[in-house]
Design a protein around this nucleic acid. Structure first.
Lengths: 216, 216
DNA sequence: AAGCAAAATGAGTGACCACTCACTCATTAT
DNA sequence: ATAATGAGTGAGTGGTCACTCATTTTGCTT
């Protein structure tokens, strides 16, 4: 039935040490069941069974079932935020710098792999956010500005290198990039060997459109 | 608290006549509460109150609470599918035909308005699909092929008019268009007066990229 | 007006489930 | 050796809620 378990620790190396073992066991168990049946349909008894502990123990670590979900949100935020360090560093020191196309390629493929690897975690949390305004806000407030800032930097960089049209709007570009990532994750080829080819194809057309050097 | 009620009848004119009045009242009440609190947190008593009927009456029209949701899916499918008739007719008889850019502009703005107008309906149903594989399949199987077919037709048409690159892949184009629509609906300007301007801007860049007449 | 069937009603019910708490017992401190 | 500690436990509980059904209301026919 359940081929293999998702384990959050693989994606949050430093988290393991800073929190008690049982808390992670509970969260991992919860993620795996939530992703299959959803939050409401999951019984605390099942979570306990899957975590290999007694039901009562859950409530020593979490005041309520809801609190398990609430605890997941900051963890998911950390998983979702791209490791911008590499590409941004390259942008800042212009010498030996990459093309905008390559920077975007790196970011997009990296985030698509993140979505594939963390599908269960995302499926556990995201659907529940829709009817929980405070959690949704927490998510958006932490994720969107970081992405927008990064996209802004890339665009500035691209304009200075004359790779991007001067009139390009950062917000609209972010929407476009997010849209492609979301849409490809949902409707794209599931076979990962197509992924890099598809992203290259997408970028080759998109960059041509964004580039101002061509006036037909 | 609740400013105004969503009413499904406005978007499904012919549906009203073919089904009993109380069924629509129940579905409309359910949509309005589901969209605020989610399916699980909604009590059948509340649905009855909002519909102005007794709780027991619900179960004369629906065998279970779940059945209300299941009944919504085919309705949402009909709301989501674009009125392709106009643009496709214009494509088929080539004379006096529009540009691909204008056809896409029409479709994208129309679907964005649909999402805005039916936000409550979408928020009621979509989150619940994620953990209900049969309903999700029903949705995907009915919606995606129609969109893909339409996009295929537009691309063919665009290639024949030399407005689109011959190498353009229909599936990837569909993903791009769906991605923009989804992403703009989620993260775009909420003020509707920006909508048409933003779609024009998006298309002006995107079409330039998809157009093969320009080799920098 | 009387009779009748279908529709509507809402109090009642049984199953369910998050959470509690009195107790256990391994580990540590004295 | 004995005591103190507190993490762990799981049967029990109280409240909830989808659904039922005996009764009432409605609306139609004669």
């Amino acid at each position: 039935m359940t081929e293999e378990n998702y384990d959050i620790q693989e994606y949050l190396e430093d988290y393991t040490e800073s929190s008690p073992d049982k808390e992670i066991r509970i969260i991992n168990a919860a993620i795996n069941i939530f992703s299959e049946k959803g939050f409401e349909a999951t019984r605390t008894r099942e979570i306990a069974e899957r975590a290999g502990i007694a039901e009562g123990t859950i409530f020593r670590y979490f005041p309520s079932k809801d609190a398990i979900l609430e605890r997941m949100v900051p963890l998911l935020i950390r998983v979702m935020l791209p490791r911008f360090a590499g590409p941004i560093e390259r942008i800042i020191k212009n010498h030996a710098a990459d093309s905008v196309e390559n920077i975007l390629f790196e970011i997009i493929t990296d985030r698509l792999h993140m979505i594939r690897d963390n599908e269960r975690f995302i499926k556990s949390v995201v659907p529940e956010l829709i009817h929980r305004a405070p959690l949704m806000q927490q998510m958006e407030a932490n994720v969107l500005p970081v992405i927008e800032q990064f996209v802004g930097k890339v665009i500035e960089y691209g304009k200075s290198r004359n790779e991007l049209d001067q009139g390009l709007d950062a917000h609209l570009v972010m929407i476009q990039l997010l849209g492609f990532i979301l849409s490809y994750a949902m409707f794209g080829q599931k076979d990962p060997k197509h992924l890099e080819k598809d992203v290259r194809a997408y970028l080759s057309y998109t960059m041509k459109g964004w580039n101002n050097s061509c006036k037909p």
